[in-house]
Write a protein that binds this DNA or RNA. Structure first.
Lengths: 333, 333
DNA sequence: TTGTAGGCGTTATCAA
DNA sequence: TTGATAACGCCTACAA
């Protein structure tokens, strides 16, 4: 690949002149400029951003560490981050951590060595102190988890969301709500569980009942099966699943068992993934504005990079309760 | 951030010695090695891959140019590419082109300047000759589109898939199949249209009927509405939509119109996105193995990078007809 | 308006 | 075994 020297030689000028026309700064006569442009064209010259980066210390690259891009909750976030990044001339390195702490660590180290200027961390599960040790002084923004000691954070109030979801079930007339939680090692799972607990305490006339699962559809399916086997007055008439994927699993279990969701069993999910609008019945859920959160996270990151500040920003986004058929006791029209 | 020089000074050795312990090559006495390791630790030294890249010419970075990561067909591909990449110590720069040729071009240029070692191009819509001009000699693999003049390609036979889908409808007893196509500017849309045409010719006793749409759910919804307004003997009893998103739109239109999909109207989609298994009714579709294609594409790319060859590999993956409820004339049970 | 030279953080070659 | 030193491709004073 042609270098700036090659161009200089071809154009019969010095490298600094070439540099000047590339960066469009300093004085260059129209004559020489034309020659240079011409030479670049002939040689198919493309400046090396890595050499530039060495000099300038800027790589215009950000990292995105996300659990799993093929999980429907995350693509919107990723898209938001990317849109904001590219508008500011930054690129994104995609890192799927699979919720594994070692992978997260490994990626962050890699990103540092690649001299990424910052990283958006989505749904991190690492211990914060460990994380900070690894991440060093690289700017970062956390999405879907509040960081306590450093970095900016963007998230929604999981506890309040879960509370709202559960409360909604009682308000729709369901009497006995059981919760299918995510793995309680996950902070979000814990928060949603807490929200459920509080709503049960306030509105339920029964003990809370929790089945721990794994945030996956199959996990929701199995959990529902277990729950719905129960007979008699203990039989729940509503389920709040800690995410939509598990809620969809619940819907499927109901279909197999001949239980009519909505009428016989209220179901609420969490996240607001697109396909919840197409299930049968359509899924009531707590919608989280993933795209906006991703976009905002990236914006905060870029601000921090351009203008490092001492303050730490925390933004709590509003969720939205999307009421759909899975919590309608009457058959819809 | 500490440099190799700082480490050398701190450890009381020369930079070359430090370099030797970093890369674990050449001779270093245990004594000095320990000093160096210690110094690196104290200073929190992280080698700069960008400086290394300048010297070695290797960046261990690949580009992934994909239309839209938030479109459910693509995350699996992306995940496949990323998994293969990271196993080989490569990172991925994520680029959402939105199917826009200018964005694609812009990203490719950027990737070249960043000295990515190669790029996986998913669903490119650029004219091949233009593409090659921009992409220069950077290795690339095309997914979901066959390239004729350069690069490797990985795709499924869209024409055969569409043929199979349409044929399936006739075999299930539907008589009049209409096609909702993607934008005919898209190669895949054209190929699927062709497959439909051929199946109609072979098995249908009617003229082909095509409604062009946009690969989006809303587009499918509107197209279905248009189609189902028709009265009398011309009223189609089956729809083959060129992708699942549009097929889901069809299901929704049917729900609104009180038409029972499956029984009254056969519906087949294309892609095999996850949510098709949860719709009502569940969606018959042509499944494309996105993860495997992505993974294989990346593998081919890496092979090409390590060992550039003159040959050009084309791999056609098998699709799978997933027969579900939307093409069952009897109510299930 | 143009060119020369030093430096960005590493690796690699060569002497010592 | 170790240490200078010249690249790598580019930018930026500084000088002319």
């Amino acid at each position: 690949m042609a270098t700036i020297k090659d161009v200089a030689r071809e154009a019969g000028v010095s490298v600094s002149t070439v540099s000047r026309v590339i960066n469009d700064n300093g004085y260059v006569s129209d004559d020489k400029r034309k020659n240079v442009l011409n030479a670049m064209d002939i040689l198919g010259f493309r400046p090396s951003n890595i050499a530039r980066g060495l000099v300038s210390g800027k790589t215009y690259t950000l990292g995105l560490v996300i659990p799993d891009i093929s999980n429907p909750f995350f693509p919107n976030i990723a898209r938001g981050v990317e849109d904001e990044a590219i508008e500011n001339n930054y690129n994104l390195i995609l890192c799927n951590s699979d919720w594994k702490i070692e992978r997260e660590d490994m990626y962050i180290s890699l990103l540092i060595e690649k001299r990424c200027e910052g990283v958006v961390l989505v749904g991190s599960r690492s211990l914060e102190s460990d994380l900070l040790k690894i991440i060093g002084k690289m700017p970062f923004v956390s999405v879907d988890r509040e960081m306590v000691q450093a970095g900016h954070s963007v998230w929604v109030d999981n506890e309040l969301g879960a509370y709202t979801a559960t409360k909604h079930l009682y308000e729709m007339g369901y009497r006995r709500v059981v919760h299918i939680s995510g793995p309680t090692s996950a902070r979000t799972a814990k928060a949603r569980l807490a929200g459920y607990m509080q709503a049960v305490e306030e509105f339920g006339h029964h003990e809370p009942q929790i089945v721990e699962s794994d945030f996956r559809r199959s996990g929701g399916y199995e959990a529902a099966w277990k729950i719905l086997e129960q007979e008699g007055s203990h039989r729940p008439d509503a389920i709040f699943a800690a995410n939509d994927l598990m809620a969809i699993g619940v819907l499927q279990a109901c279909e197999k068992l001949g239980i009519k969701c909505g009428t016989d069993l209220g179901v609420v999910g969490y996240d607001g993934i697109g396909s919840g609008a197409y299930t049968s019945p359509t899924l009531t859920t707590i919608f989280q504005p993933g795209y906006e959160m991703g976009r905002r996270a990236c914006q905060l990151l870029l601000e921090e990079i351009v203008n490092p500040s001492k303050r730490r920003i925390k933004e709590v986004f509003n969720f939205e309760l999307l009421v759909r058929s899975s919590t309608q006791r009457m058959t819809e029209e």
